[in-house]
Design a protein around this nucleic acid. Structure first.
Lengths: 142, 142
DNA sequence: CCGGATCCGTTTCGATACTG
DNA sequence: CAGTATCGAAACGGATCCGG
């Protein structure tokens, strides 16, 4: 339906608007990639103050898009764990580019200039280490 | 104000949400980068059917963010030309990553598999050629 | 004609309260 | 802890109008 409408519309960018065209979805993915958040409550704690209903709707959408997966914690029955799928992990290079752009062109206050240089100089290594972390998480659950 | 609020909020990604968190802004930038659109009417013609008021608001925002610049066509007085600034051109690597991700993971129908491989294999060349095009445009105006 | 601005019904968002 | 329910506020978007 909506999904297939997007398919018909053509270019890869318009297809990915559900994800990148939405502020909250982007923040959720950011937190999963860079801060390894996995629980509902973790996402609520971010500085951007996402509301519970919005968060729930975005998590559901990201799951529908196949970017994250959801499972109840085997240990504590009422905890839910969200993790990135392969498709989600594949977004990491994109997010790293985003961080680089933001750091260079937006005067982000958190950005340590030295740190940025380091990231840019071996972007590939940085990407790989993030990928490792996310993949490791996925394996822990299985 | 809003701008400085964003500054305070911290990480480069949250700072860039005004741009990437919005579907229409993203589409405008896409069209400028990949299809070299420059006029108001050009953006209206995209498959996604943006409304005139929405387009106007996004162009204004992108200009305020310093990502695009606006000037009246020296030739035909009533035409307005939008072009990417340096800051806007710096988004190209990000957009290329986005295209790669979308092509690989969203089953985009327009995506010629051979074409994608080619882009991935020399991503840097592809990025450079796009940058050249955009820079060339800017120079034409001056 | 071109680049918008205005109006206005409809949709979506998002803060808070509430539930299992 | 992980979500729904509710409801006012904001954004969207189609049609139309306007100035140059």
């Amino acid at each position: 339906m909506t999904q297939s409408d997007k398919r018909r519309s053509g270019c890869p960018i318009s297809c990915s608007l559900d994800l990148l065209g939405d502020k909250w979805s982007l923040l959720v993915v950011r937190d999963m990639v860079f801060v390894q958040k996995r629980h509902f409550k973790d996402f609520l704690k971010s500085d951007e103050k996402i509301a519970t209903n919005i968060l729930a709707s975005r998590l559901a959408r990201l799951e529908a898009l196949g970017i994250i997966s959801k499972q109840t914690d085997p240990g504590s029955k009422r905890q839910v764990i969200y993790s990135l799928t392969t498709k989600g992990i594949a977004l990491i290079p994109l997010l790293v580019e985003l961080v680089c752009w933001g750091s260079l062109h937006l005067g982000a206050p958190d950005a340590d200039p030295g740190e940025i240089k380091k990231i840019q100089n071996n972007k590939q290594k940085f990407i790989h280490s993030l990928e490792k972390k996310c993949q490791h998480q996925v394996q822990l659950q299985n």
